[in-house]
Design a protein around this nucleic acid. Sequence first.
DNA 1: CTGCGCTTACACCTTTTGGTTGATGTCCGG
DNA 2: CCGGACATCAACCAAAAGGTGTAAGCGCAG
Lengths: 209, 209
Amino acid sequence: MTAIRLLLADDHPVVRAGLRALLETEPDFSVVADVATPDEAVELAARLAVDVVLMDLQFAGRMLGARATAAITSRDGAPRVLVLTTYDTDADILAAIEAGATGYLLKDAPPEELAAAVRTAAAGRSALAPAVALRLMDRVREPSTALSRRETEVLQLVAEGLSNDQISKRLFLSQATVKSHLAHIYTKLGVDSRTAAVATATAQGIIRR
Amino acid sequence: MTAIRLLLADDHPVVRAGLRALLETEPDFSVVADVATPDEAVELAARLAVDVVLMDLQFAGRMLGARATAAITSRDGAPRVLVLTTYDTDADILAAIEAGATGYLLKDAPPEELAAAVRTAAAGRSALAPAVALRLMDRVREPSTALSRRETEVLQLVAEGLSNDQISKRLFLSQATVKSHLAHIYTKLGVDSRTAAVATATAQGIIRR
DNA sequence: CTGCGCTTACACCTTTTGGTTGATGTCCGG
DNA sequence: CCGGACATCAACCAAAAGGTGTAAGCGCAG
């Protein structure tokens, strides 16, 4: 049995070293490279014939991991991408899954869970951390509080302090559409103002700040 | 020359492994233990006669590191505490320094910076990451961004989703006063809406969600 | 003692946001 | 193929929030 070939992508040197240290103790794992940027990850994922990429979602505070994940998984014979991040918010999870991630793990996961997820991903099966799986279950069970992708996107911008007008320009919509989305968001969250929506959504982990 | 004895306190196994891997390559460092909880950190810092404690601020999403830091540094002959965390918000930095931390590093620091900071801390000198030092300088230079107690109180309620009317009732003020406070807040933060104020203040750690 | 900043407060006006109703097109699943 | 969820936009009205000017009491440092 050949070793599972791994590529680590995270902008924190400490995290890269930690993952390497933890994963190299497994005899059937081989960490072939670790990189600090999404671009390097995309390039090396293609060149080095790896089996699984462990990908952070945030690089230098921005959400570049999802795009890199999409770039990696879009090719034929692409490696599996296991997203490994700090936050378990709806927005992040959906972005990752949409980008083609095979699994979603949290950085506070114990080493055994990490290794198990890598093997699951290498076998092509989906690997979700318990907390993440639970959140997705809740989402399915309770569709009234589940915001659509577009709604989440709008609300994220609201949380960043943008006005309806700024949001409409950012998303190439009319203010009317932004207001429409917000009205739906208020209904779903049971609130009646943008700040209350942000507060509620933040508390529930629907958006990140 | 005796080795510098280190204790690692972080709830993320990956981070503990990473710090251990990076620091043990230094011949003059000796990692004597790593722990996952603040309580263990306080206990072992006293028992093991360590020189420097590398302390995370957040444990399981809560700010327990500052209290542990205070507990460790309050004793005679206490080890130096080097706070190592992900965020460089005002509130976190001030809490750490107030608790008696000798230094404040960010987790995205390169390994050399990390090792240098440990040696600096072991020698009893203050070790601040460049980004952190810069923020403190800004704070001293630009006191206009410092909100008064009342203003912070109002803004905290805004962040919780309350309307001006609700805030006025909560604080036994008139809506006019709340609006006055908010106008001052907008000026100090350089924004022009309540959501933008919350976003900015949260980013700077002025308020906590 | 005398400013200065914080807190409180009011009035007037403009801009933004929220609430409602209605309409069109798309896409997906039964 | 059709219903339903989603996304898009419009027009209108009501309410909330923001902008500006003004001002009084209070505590504190120079």
